[in-house]
């Protein structure tokens, strides 16, 4: 009797243990890592796809990822060798959208690829390279190196201080307060440069219009377009030699008293001892204009 009782108790204990195990809460799913310590010059790679990105440079020595992404997708921060990679994970075949928010040390190097997602970066002091198809790109801060390549996205840069390279097919470029070297190329996109202080400027378009306002030092500087119009606004006291060659376009010189019109090849010397700006075009018009006082 006592033997069968012991067996019954043992079975009951076993059944209880089994049921406890069976109905216990599943082990907690570890959330994606969202914050990592990082050196000031860390390299961060971001693969966006259709998601927008807002990235901000901050004074902290860490990377932080936040997100507002639809349809069960999530952002993951991973270390890959010396660099960090931010990936968007989710069910395949289901389109997603939303915004990825990223904070990085302000001197970080950013390598961003996007398809339709927009990229907006603020307070960036290091290098930012963005390859996009149709997303817009907006970057501000004294970045030492900015490289943007896009097919149809609009590009807006502000305050870069170093070297800037931008390439687009049809997207318009608005680049302001750039210091250092600037190279930009488009087919039909317009290029507008404001308040620049450039040691070297190289612009090329096919039909896109070009507007440059600022100071052109050292050089050589060059603007090439086939059928786009060019307008260059410079301070009167700048030292610069301007050489214009146009096959059929009109050259308007607002520095002349009174303003004059020309065709073919034209030279305008501003001051003495400065750099050279060479403007080459086929059929577009050129306007050289003094910056308004104040």
């Amino acid at each position: 009797m006592s033997g069968s009782c012991s067996v019954a108790i043992a079975l009951a204990v076993f059944a209880l243990a089994l049921s406890t195990t069976a109905f216990a809460a599943p082990p907690p799913v570890e959330p994606p890592v969202r914050t990592k310590p990082a050196p000031a010059d860390v390299v961060v790679e971001v693969e966006l796809g259709e998601v927008d990105l807002e990235v901000e440079g901050w004074a902290k020595a860490k990377i932080e990822v936040d997100e507002d992404i639809a349809a069960g997708w999530t952002a993951r921060l991973e270390k890959d060798g010396d660099r960090f990679v931010v990936r968007i994970d989710g069910p395949p075949g289901i389109p997603t959208g939303g915004t990825l928010k990223l904070r990085v040390p302000k001197g970080a190097e950013l390598l961003i690829t996007a398809r339709t997602g927009d990229v907006r970066g603020v307070n960036l002091h290091g290098r930012a390279a963005v390859a996009s198809i149709s997303g817009d790109v907006e970057i501000s801060g004294p970045a030492t190196r900015v490289e943007v390549a896009t097919t149809s996205g609009e590009v807006r840069l502000d305050g870069a201080n170093g070297r800037v390279d931008v390439e687009t097919v049809s997207g318009n470029l608005a680049l302001s307060r750039i210091k250092g070297e600037l190279r930009a190329q488009s087919v039909s996109g317009d290029i507008e440069i404001g308040k620049a202080q450039l040691d070297r400027l190289q612009l090329m378009t096919v039909s896109g219009d070009v507007e440059v306002a600022g100071e052109l030092r050292k050089g050589p500087h060059g603007i090439d377009t086939n059928s786009g119009d060019v307008r260059v606004t410079l301070p009167r006291n700048l030292a610069l030699r301007i050489l214009v060659s146009s096959f059929s376009g009109e050259i308007n010189d607002g520095f002349a008293e009174p303003p004059s019109r020309h065709r073919g090849s034209y030279r305008r010397d501003l001051g003495k001892g400065g750099g050279t700006l060479e403007i080459s075009m086929f059929s577009g018009d050129v306007t050289l204009a003094p910056r308004a006082p104040g």
């Binding site: 198809i133 149709s134 097919v169 049809s170 039909s188 039909s207 086939n226 059928s227 086929f282 059929s283």
Partner: peptide, 21 residues
């Protein structure tokens, strides 16, 4: 379609530039 339209239009622009030049 949109990307194709961008490339086709701009290739046309470049070809026209080559032709007139």
């Amino acid at each position: 379609r949109e990307l194709l339209a961008v490339y086709e239009e701009n290739l046309g622009i470049v070809d026209a530039a080559i032709d007139r030049s």
